[in-house]
């Protein structure tokens, strides 16, 4: 048994042999009604996903809009209860050991959700306070992380609504990292960033795996990003994995470039919003 988790968040005993993430037969459907419609429709957002992620891996989930990436991430992040199937994080079932699992994970979403009128410092104080991280340490760590992400420290003191989308996303990444998660769930962290910021964030993700011994699941619809960052990539379409493997292997089997792989597996016509 070794101790994983943060210096400040109460550590969780973790079996070093355990998979960082193990999901079996996960299903989730929603009821949806378009405005004006009377009938509810069932949307199968995730339909039968199996997943085994060893510790230290960066797994990419590549898929078109509406393919179920965010739903899957929310299930892994204990925010959604799956209709069927089971998920374990470092051997802990996410339903039965919800609070333990929550100490091991954190999530960054596409939308950097903050109290927009408050400053980054205030937002970070609130968020890390919920995890029991002492504020002084949190602020010092935040300054260091944001510096590595190429963001000046004085930006921490202005209301978040005055920061650019890229800067907000960097603060969101800092917020997640401050709780030293052993499993990071990143849902399109670079969508909408300019090329320079995207590079910085990507480099940072590689850095985090190195320095913090973190396991990372990252959703994206950016082919280059998937290839550059990920040890393995899962191609998701209509709530199912079409293929999972290292980028090299996928390319050897399904096409010359990741883009070719993507279109071979998903089909040109379906690779758009449902």
């Amino acid at each position: 048994m070794s101790i994983a988790g943060a210096e400040f968040v109460r550590p969780v005993p973790v079996d070093p042999q355990a998979l960082a993430l193990c999901a079996v037969g996960v299903h989730k459907s929603f009821r949806e009604r378009e405005s004006g419609e009377h009938q509810w429709r069932r949307v199968d957002a995730v339909s039968g996903i199996d997943l085994a992620v060893p510790r230290g891996e960066i797994l990419g989930i590549l898929g078109p809009n509406g393919s179920g990436k965010s739903t899957l991430i929310r299930i892994l992040a204990t925010l959604l209860v799956p209709d069927r199937g089971s998920v374990e994080v470092f051997g802990y079932d996410i339903g039965r050991h919800r609070l333990l699992v929550r100490r091991l994970i954190n999530r960054v979403s596409v939308e950097a959700s903050f109290f927009k009128k408050l400053t980054a410092e205030e937002n970070l104080a609130y968020a890390t306070g919920l995890y029991g991280v002492p504020n002084r340490q949190a602020q010092a760590m935040a300054r260091e992380i944001l510096e590595r992400l190429g963001m000046p420290a004085k930006k921490l003191r202005v209301p978040l609504e005055q920061l650019s989308r890229g800067q907000q996303q960097k603060v969101a990444i800092a917020r997640a990292l401050l709780t030293s998660p052993t499993l990071m769930l990143l849902d399109e962290p670079t969508t909408g960033l300019d090329p320079k910021s995207r590079r910085e964030v990507q480099q940072f993700i590689l850095d985090v795996r190195q320095r913090h011994d973190a396991t990372i699941v990252i959703c994206t619809h950016d082919m280059d990003e998937a290839e550059r960052l990920c040890d393995r990539v899962a191609i998701i379409n209509r709530g199912r994995f079409e293929a999972v493997g290292p980028p090299q292997e996928l390319k050897a089997r399904h096409g010359a470039t990741m883009e070719a792989v993507f279109f071979t597996l998903i089909g040109e016509s379906t690779a758009e919003e449902r």
Binding site: V9, R74, L79, R103, E111, S113, F114, K116, L130, Y131
Partner: peptide
């Protein structure tokens, strides 16, 4: 407020009992 800003998913994901929150 938390729902409006979308922070509620982050607060509810924190390892803290709802009673404490």
């Amino acid at each position: 407020w938390e729902r409006w800003e979308g922070t509620i998913e982050y607060s509810f994901m924190a390892p803290i009992r709802r009673v404490t929150y």
